[in-house]
């Protein structure tokens, strides 16, 4: 077999992801009240960003791919924002 080694950025990303997983599980057991949810979702976003940037090679892509990748998230944001607005402001 020819010599092939996993590229360093991929390895680094993988290690970071596993570390973040450990971190988020650990922090879930630390009582932070409402911040538990914030921390969990923030770490989730960070992990997703790493996967998107490194594994999905978004960091090597142009503006168009960025817009395409962002569109889904943007509209998800609209759905959550306006959808939750009703439920959070009911009297």
């Amino acid at each position: 077999m020819t010599a092939w080694r996993p590229p360093l950025p991929l390895v680094a990303a993988w290690l970071a992801l596993i570390a973040l997983l450990g971190l988020t599980v650990m922090l879930a057991y630390v009582p932070l009240h409402m911040f538990n949810a914030v921390v969990a979702l923030a770490i989730g976003c960070l992990k997703a960003a790493i996967v998107a940037a490194v594994f999905m090679e978004l960091r090597h892509r142009g503006r168009r791919t960025f817009i395409f990748a962002g569109a889904g998230l943007f509209w998800l944001g609209i759905l959550l924002w306006l959808g939750l607005m009703d439920f959070l402001t009911r009297t």
Binding site: L82, M85, D86, F87, T89, R90, T91
Partner: peptide, 17 residues
């Protein structure tokens, strides 16, 4: 995409919505 709630003005959604 930002207007769907106008189908629900009498449905009981919040006034702000």
């Amino acid at each position: 995409f930002l207007v769907w709630g106008h189908h629900m003005f009498v449905a009981g959604q919040s006034l702000l919505a």
